[in-house]
Amino acid sequence: MSDPPLDFPITATGLVRHFGPENNRVKAVDGVDLHVSAGEIFGFLGPNGAGKSTTVRMLTTLLKPTAGSATVAGFDVVTQADRVRRSIGVALQDAAIDPLMTGNELLELQAVLYGIPAAAVRRRADELLERVGLTAAADRRVGTYSGGMRRRLDLALSLIHQPTVLFLDEPTTGLDPMSRITLWEEVRRLNREGTTVLLTTQYLEEADQLADRVAIIDNGVIVQQGTPTELKAAVGAPSLLVSVGLPGGAAQVTDVVRALDEQGVKIQHLELSEPSLDDVFAAATGHRLEGAGTGTEPATDHEGAPAVKRRGRR
């Protein structure tokens, strides 16, 4: 018989982690407090070196905290590390998977290490391979997988024992946009099925798309915490970004500004965008290259003329 569901499957109080000798100490995490509710996707957002991965490594029992305490699935990460490990699934940064093994072999090894009954191993492995769309590649060595396939296998490995709490450390870093969206859909599906997810990311869009609540960490300290809507509202009122095509070229900016002024629109920001190679790529393929702008608005109008993007308020 199991324990009743926890309100907060992940908690941390004053979590601290230092590295290095006393005279040259680096404070990677400096007093993190967290309360992740059952069934939510919690986004841990921050730049490289902010302390996201170190926090996750402490919560997943890989690293002992210098100070503070944390519980995962109701168990202390230091004194009950084994109970924590039985309850969580973890996909760490870089999808570290043995390239000499096949997807099938890795899932079978993972099942053995988690004590899945021998009779259930094959069926569970097949289910997970199908779930992440790797059935056809199951008997290929992982060294031949693409980055996206590795990530999906990594996710499947972390689900072998049907964990109730899942840690995903930068799961989409380095993935192409399509692979990223596929992984997002899988994370949402897992969450719908009742899995609590703590997801670290350096992508604002990812946190915005996936997370019910977000904590922003910088220099080892959580500087903001709340729902994406709350956090955005705290920064200021919404603004409107409109793209206006200029078939007559950049000289038409004056006309646009004059027209807006006549209508009483207060312009906060005005930016002239010229077509880029990314726009050429997008026009040719229907999607954008990874890391090329936000990917949400075209830099040109449909005819390829330069566009004025303006953010204004009446």
Partner: peptide, 21 residues
């Protein structure tokens, strides 16, 4: 674990806490 379950599965074993190898 019976459907629906965390990390969805139709294979039956204790899902809240893996037995450990």
């Amino acid at each position: 674990a019976t459907s629906p379950s965390p990390a969805g599965s139709t294979v039956s074993f204790d899902s809240a806490s893996a037995p450990g190898g």
